[in-house]
Simulated assay, not measured.
Amino acid sequence: MTTIQGLPAGLTTRPLRAEDSRAVYELIAACERHDVGSVEIEEADLVGDWGRPSFDIASSTMSVHDGDRLVAYAELTSDTRADAHVHPDHRRRGIGTALSGWVRATARARGSAVVGSPVPQGSDGDRLLERLGYFVRWESWVLELPPGAEIAAQPLPRGHTIRTAATEEDQRAAWTILEDAFLEWSERDREPFEDFAAEVMGRPGFEPWHLRLVVDGDGVPVGACHLVVFRGEDTTQGYVQSLGVRRDRRHQGLARALLADAFANAREVGAVSSELSTDTRTGALGLYTRVGMRVRQTWLHRAYDLTRPEPAARPVGSGA
């Protein structure tokens, strides 16, 4: 296992364990309150992600502790993507710099040529990664359908209907449609169905209607949408985790119909607003703004070219 170098004296490290999900959630929540002004995560997100059969928590995570308190962590969620957080009270001590070094070393050991992380634009993490030589690989946005607004129901083509993906056959069809759509622009391997099942159906709180299909007149699935109902500290929101339509069935209003269906279902269970995210790779921003959604946050995916030399060591306390 790759070790972490350059931490301030007195801190300890270890890989995470599944039972750490609550502590990690609380850490990320504190960071999100500081960086974007609201909590954007649920503990269920961590449970679902860590439950993927392809994810080995012992070799893919590193946590930093001050006594018994978790103050920072990083995880390599795939060979080319990492997530990391340092509690606001412990920033500018070199912890973020040390965790970034661990991420790069771990990704290199796995044979990756690049590794990146999403960070809120202008945040402490954004500035740190820029100083360390991370480039902007793409820009992404969180879009919101404001409270009280709704997307008008989109008429479906003749013979098409929207229904719940209630069986494993349906779930595999949804996985195929979503993976095919995302792999048109995403630089990654196809996600195994077992990982999809852990993240979607295995996520605590999942209900069958969270995964919906558009089927044509012959009953063939041609579009899919995965909705998450986020029950936060102060409000309930709908969040479209993924949305895709088969390439040969696009430009018929199916994506808009799925979106209207998802947000209407979220309202029925108490959601006061609904959100989704998209980025510069998809070309879908215009679709969402045209139906009345507005950009609420801007994020950058900053990445490091692992074929480059490592950045020069910085004194402890000079970074996040």
Rank of each mutant, 00 (worst) to 15 (best):
Q121M: 13
L132G: 10
R188V: 12
A262M: 01
L128C: 13
R91I: 12
V142T: 15
H160P: 04
C225W: 01
L183S: 09
A255E: 03
S63G: 14
H301K: 10
V240K: 00
V115G: 04
D180H: 12
R52P: 09
D49V: 10
A72Y: 10
S140Q: 14
S273K: 03
R267Q: 10
V291C: 03
E194I: 02
S54I: 05
Y25K: 09
G37F: 11
T164I: 08
S38T: 12
V47S: 08
A303C: 00
G159C: 13
L11V: 07
M62A: 10
V115C: 12
G219H: 12
V119A: 07
A224E: 03
W175S: 00
E310K: 03
A44F: 01
R188Y: 06
E144T: 14
L145M: 07
L213Q: 00
G317H: 01
Q154W: 02
S318C: 06
E233V: 14
V119F: 08
Q171I: 02
L276M: 15
T176Q: 12
V316H: 04
A18G: 10
D45G: 02
S100R: 15
A181Y: 15
A266Q: 15
V86G: 00
A109H: 06
P311H: 08
L99E: 08
T298E: 13
L132E: 14
V240S: 01
F193M: 10
R231D: 05
P15L: 06
I95R: 04
V269K: 11
R108G: 03
A72Q: 07
T13W: 03
A264C: 07
P118N: 12
H160E: 04
R231F: 04
E144F: 11
T176E: 13
R250F: 01
P146F: 08
G122A: 04
H301Y: 09
A198D: 10
L306F: 05
V269E: 08
V200F: 01
R302Q: 07
E191K: 13
A30K: 05
L254F: 00
A197E: 05
Q154R: 08
D49Q: 14
R290I: 07
D180F: 02
D79K: 09
A303E: 07
W185M: 14
P120R: 15
V269Q: 09
H34R: 08
S274A: 03
G238T: 07
E184K: 05
A262W: 00
A312C: 02
V228F: 06
F230E: 04
T298W: 04
M201G: 11
A271G: 13
I95V: 03
T289G: 06
I151K: 03
D89L: 12
G101A: 07
A149C: 11
